[in-house]
């Protein structure tokens, strides 16, 4: 049984701070050795997860969802109404995606996703969140100065555009459906997916046609 006591855990953190190896790589190695020795971890499973996140689970998945929404109106409607169900068409279910919500950028509205309290992110659809998404400056500023944050990412919005910032405080996970850029009429789903970036699906970029 775990003693779910805040003061006990805070005291343990202080003790760990003083006693663990000074290099993070060594700390992680020590933890892995202990977990394996305890019978709590199989290193081959760790290798398998590393491979999955290197190849299969990443923002290319979300880009395919976006490209389909751009080319298939019925899918787009389903995605906006029940994103979890629509994304399941692709088999992109997994970590952090039991309760998906997709919010759509339009002429009038620009959406931006943040997690001010930790780092919640739809891993199975977008992969590992970028370091900036998990950083203190982004978490602090996205809800207070979203337009200033967007300018740092090279996105200048007209004053008339409404910015909606989604703070991921629950187990709902948000993804932005970006606007389809002009000049892409007739493009295939694959060609469209190739221009959708990770940042565009978080809301810190617009999708553009490469020059």
């Amino acid at each position: 049984m775990t003693e779910h006591d805040s003061h006990t855990v805070a005291a343990i953190h202080r003790e760990l701070h003083d006693h663990l190896p000074s290099d993070p790589a060594l700390r992680v190695k020590a933890l892995e050795s202990v977990l394996v020795g305890k019978g709590m971890l199989d290193p081959a499973a760790v290798d398998a997860w590393i491979e999955l996140y290197a190849d299969e689970i990443g923002p290319k998945r979300g880009a395919r969802v976006v490209a389909r929404a751009w080319t298939d109106a019925a899918f787009r409607a389903r995605l906006l109404a029940d994103a979890t169900d629509a994304i399941a068409d692709f088999g992109f279910t997994g970590w952090g995606t039991a309760h998906m919500r997709v919010v759509e950028n339009t002429d009038e509205v620009h959406n931006l996703v943040v997690c001010t309290l930790c780092s919640c992110y739809p891993h199975a659809v977008l992969g590992i969140p970028p370091a900036w998404y998990k950083s203190a400056p982004y978490r602090a500023r996205a809800v207070r100065d979203p337009r200033g944050v967007l300018v740092e990412f090279g996105v200048a919005l007209p004053a008339a555009t409404e910015v909606r910032v989604w703070d991921s405080t629950s187990e709902l996970r948000y993804m932005v459906l970006p606007r389809r850029p002009d000049g892409t009429d007739g493009w295939s789903e694959d060609r469209l997916a190739a221009i959708v970036t990770r940042n565009a699906m978080i809301g810190t970029a617009l999708v553009t046609v490469p020059a």
């Binding site: 993070p24 933890l31 977990l35 971890l41 290798d47 997860w49």
Partner: peptide, 17 residues
């Protein structure tokens, strides 16, 4: 996704333990 091998390793560990 990761910027050091130990980051990828730790992420894999927490999914496998």
């Amino acid at each position: 996704p990761f910027h050091a091998p130990w980051e990828a390793r730790l992420n894999g560990m927490v999914r496998a333990i």
